[in-house]
């Protein structure tokens, strides 16, 4: 009994020591080696390249598809000519795709649509839809373009299981605030000046509240630089109001902590 208690105690103590070494808040100040700031990027399903929908490109591709399909003497049933407002059946689309892939230089429709970010998806739908409405013969192509988009949203849904914002979402928020934040250029770049701002947002992205998480430091004597940085951060958040936010996952981004750090910019 005594022996097993001792073993248990020693084992637990060991765990405690190990965990206190591993968990920084138990140790207090940790000697951190020289920090090389690296943007940690969580790879999402889609790239975060800002993508401006080019209607003309889309149309060109559409034309190419048509031309190539025609010159290939495709069976007439593949190009639906029956009714102008007929929605192509999934098999038909599949067949068109297969046909295109057989050709030497297949034009991949998906590639175009895959480069969309969460926020621009709506905008990307519209031009094609409008053109499809105006010119009913294009409707089929518009539908083809739509198809991979829907798939994309579905796969995005799977991604959401992760508790963090995906790279596209995070970058979209970052990009907006970068533009709004006017950096006070006189701040020293060799001091630790990170201002943490907690923001609460409505579903439409409008700001409910913003507060500096380290209020005491802001009002402390001798913290002029911190104060100036904090003020500029608050201005940035307010200038960016309302933020363009993802249409989904409100729970995830309704409260966010923004860490403003001008070091890299000031170092030049």
């Amino acid at each position: 009994m005594q022996k097993s208690l001792k073993i248990s105690f020693i084992a637990h103590f060991l765990i405690l020591v190990l965990s206190s070494l591993a968990l920084p808040f138990l140790v207090g100040k940790v000697q951190v080696p020289v920090l090389i700031s690296v943007d940690l990027v969580q790879i999402g399903d889609r790239t975060n390249l800002p993508y401006a929908p080019k209607v003309t490109d889309g149309e060109k591709t559409d034309k190419k598809i048509k031309d190539k399909v025609v010159t290939n003497q495709a069976p007439p049933k593949i190009i639906p000519k029956e009714k102008p407002d007929a929605v192509p059946l999934p098999e038909n689309i599949q067949k068109i795709k297969e046909l295109l892939e057989k050709r030497q230089n297949p034009v991949k429709v998906e590639d175009l649509t895959k480069q969309t970010s969460e926020f621009e998806k709506k905008e990307i739908f519209d031009p094609n839809k409008i053109s499809a409405l105006i010119d009913k013969s294009k409707k089929d192509n518009a539908e083809i373009n739509n198809k991979p988009n829907i798939e994309a949203t579905q796969s995005q849904q799977k991604n959401i299981v992760a508790s963090k914002l995906t790279i596209t979402q995070e970058d979209a928020i970052k990009a907006q605030i970068f533009k709004c934040w006017n950096i006070p250029i006189g701040l020293p770049y060799n001091e630790n000046l990170t201002v943490r701002v907690k923001v609460k947002l409505n579903k439409d992205g409008s700001l409910i509240s913003s507060e500096i998480l380290d209020q005491t430091r802001m009002n402390a004597a001798g913290q002029t630089y911190y104060k100036i940085l904090a003020e500029s951060a608050l201005r940035a958040v307010k200038l960016c109001n309302p933020l363009k936010v993802p249409s989904t996952d409100y729970e995830k981004w309704k409260e966010m902590q923004l860490n403003f750090d001008a070091k890299e910019m000031l170092k030049g």
């Binding site: 700031s37 943007d39 963090k164 914002l165 995070e170 928020i173 970052k174 605030i177 970068f178 533009k179 934040w181 006017n182 950096i183 907690k198 951060a233 940035a236 995830k252 981004w253 409260e255 966010m256 902590q257 923004l258 860490n259 403003f260 750090d261 001008a262 070091k263 890299e264 910019m265």
Partner: peptide, 10 residues
């Protein structure tokens, strides 16, 4: 809390 690092500005 979701934390976003703002390291660039204008």
């Amino acid at each position: 809390l979701v934390s976003v690092d703002i390291t660039r500005g204008n």
